[in-house]
Design a protein around this nucleic acid. Structure first.
Lengths: 221, 221, 221, 221
DNA sequence: GATGAATGAGAGTTCATTCAT
DNA sequence: GATGAATGAACTCTCATTCAT
């Protein structure tokens, strides 16, 4: 059942409309809320301090719950980390669906209309932070790297490739470089994330601008 | 006394030629050798396991010295890490000295002759590994990020800028994009390092090839 | 009101016959049933894992009730354990009532008719398991050891002593050894339990056979 | 290399007579002493409180060392327990070597001269305490039960069997009961340990006396 | 009565750092 | 300088017990 993240989030908040069978004890809503508090707190802590320097105690304190409670929701610190990151990866998905290209719209125009916007938004949301965490901690958590690749990178490259093929057919592109190596288009995005999040927080590059330049180059402008 | 990185590296290897005054205890040569054993072992361990998962004990064992001895050379684990990474950053320096450009040689030809070679060598040596470590651990060690920027990134960008200006003058470049944003040229290198070291070790990209494509793009090929 | 153990056991099973006054909440029958579920589950868990390695949660799960409910019936884990063991001790009672000896029946014949049968049954029922638990955990629960001694050991020794006196009078026994030390007769039983339950589960001794041999020895066969 | 425990203990205390190579750091003697402190403290704590109720901290405090130090000597609490118990099991060995029987000495006389003495000593030393611990904790530590059986029980039964065969040949025994079931002779010892250590510490039985009675019975006295 | 989420004290274990030798 | 035993703070994780529902 492929729920969208939004649907999942909604389900968490809106209770079913069926006659609610009132069970004893804590309500599912409260449970979900507690769980979300923990996840939110954990995400914040992991982003701030990384996996190793985050303590369960600090997560609990931030979430406003007792230490032990976290273990009712996640069996171990690793599991908490993975769950938190995986949940966020879903949101990191970058959308450039070729099907949405308007009839007659050039590939370049389409990319400027969609991808540039997405990429300019990268740093607004926490997407770049998630990327940073996958990069930082991924070597100790192969699972999340795999998921990131599967859910974020591979689909993006695939779509770029499709668009490159289309652009080649229509004559927008003069050669097969991008078809063969779709990384070429998005390389500046990765580079920008690394620069801004790791290497030069004081003088960040403008990732959107960098990406537009690359678009210019690729399309021979 | 502003030593160049190269001088510092040399000092590490070549013992002083002044007449050695024999003191009690170990000779300076032995001391230097011991220190280097520790640094080498620490580098290997940090690369393998990251800062948090490396123990002083494992470094000591690998270096073949006692745990306590490490504290004679480095006051704390953090200091050891910084020292090790800083020392390696020196080797990560990428050389594209404009002064070495042959008379009449185009900027593009010069870059192909020098930078492409350097970049193709990046993954051979441990330069990419160091970059990876700076990226991974840098947020907890601002000092090493600063050094990396100062010794590796900034000089590289500066030289690219100079070369871009020269290329603009000679007409090799048709616009000021690269002058204004030298990152444009090396972005694929960073992207490649991230991809290969963090995200997709199974399907690495060819960083050299990616960089040459970028050179083609930038010079309008 | 000094209930006999049997009466207490009966009370547990047979609900009161008085007209039940219907109150809000669960009926006394259901309450008794719930309590018994808990006790049964607890017994099983304690036997399997010992006191320290049994969790209230596992007992609740096995009993099919919520964790908190157990605390309505027993104020603490220790109390649950004591209650469970004490209830079972009642069943461990070994019956050799001298009054039941048939007229003209020798003591030895009587013992073979009654005690041997009881003892051969020891391992069938959970009596030996209870003995094992009293032995294992008794040092931390003086109360249950006391109860075990009072309800199981002392009555048994007392009856053996009476029978020994009778046998001495009738000339079946040639000396006062058994009168002075009734343990002599049942020692192999304890030894057998220890061997079979603790030390050599792979090669159990036949406790009944061992006891009959001892009977032979004591009566000079 | 079959060292006796005594030899091992001596070696621990007496330094080699060879020219001592003075190494840096702590001396092996001190290390051995520390280790022994830990073992002694652990034994005492385990005997007092059992495995589950003994904390590493209490052992450390009793031994006068820091908590963490225990982990230099034993990798885990379980390992500490096993090591301590196994070391003690060696001392629990009961010696009745048939070869030491004097020429012309009856089996019964030999047993009275050796085994009775050993058994009377059982409660003086900590042998009975070890037996108690093996019994109490054995179900969670199969390894120590195995060792106890292998090092204490099986050899004892084997020797009793040999002696029973000898006694049968010489006519001291009138039947094969003891040959077939050597437990018969030592059952009262196990029973006595259980009684005294678990069930009735207030009114202990005299194990030696009980055993001598059994000897009388077995040899038809 | 019944639930199970929530609490929090405390356990085992690790490891950077110190220090007597 | 060199050793590695010793320290102790801090961490992850468990579980008896409580309490809002």
């Amino acid at each position: 059942m492929p729920k969208t993240p939004q649907a999942a989030a909604a389900a968490r908040i809106a209770p079913s409309r069926k006659p609610v069978i009132r069970r004893r004890g804590a309500s599912p809503e409260k449970t979900a809320h507690t769980r979300q508090s923990i996840v939110d707190a954990a995400l914040a802590e992991f982003l701030e301090s990384g996996f190793a320097n985050t303590t369960i105690e600090s997560v609990a304190k931030r979430a406003g719950v007792a230490k032990g409670l976290i273990y009712r929701y996640f069996p171990a610190k690793e599991a908490l980390f993975s769950a938190v990151v995986q949940q966020e990866i879903v949101n990191a998905h970058i959308d450039v669906d070729d099907a949405k290209r308007a009839p007659g719209e050039t590939v370049e125009a389409f990319l400027r209309r969609t991808l540039v916007v997405s990429i300019r938004a990268i740093e607004k949301k926490s997407r770049a932070d998630i990327a940073r965490m996958v990069i930082s901690e991924g070597s100790h958590f192969p699972a999340i790297t795999d998921i990131y690749r599967r859910d974020v990178i591979d689909p993006l490259l695939q779509k770029i490739k499709s668009l490159a093929i289309a652009a080649r057919k229509s004559g927008e592109l003069k050669d097969d470089r991008l078809v063969k190596n779709p990384y070429l288009l998005v390389a500046p995005v990765w580079a920008g994330i690394v620069i801004n999040k790791f290497l030069d927080r004081a003088h960040p590059v403008d990732i959107g601008e960098l990406f537009e330049m690359q678009l210019d180059l690729v399309f021979g402008k």
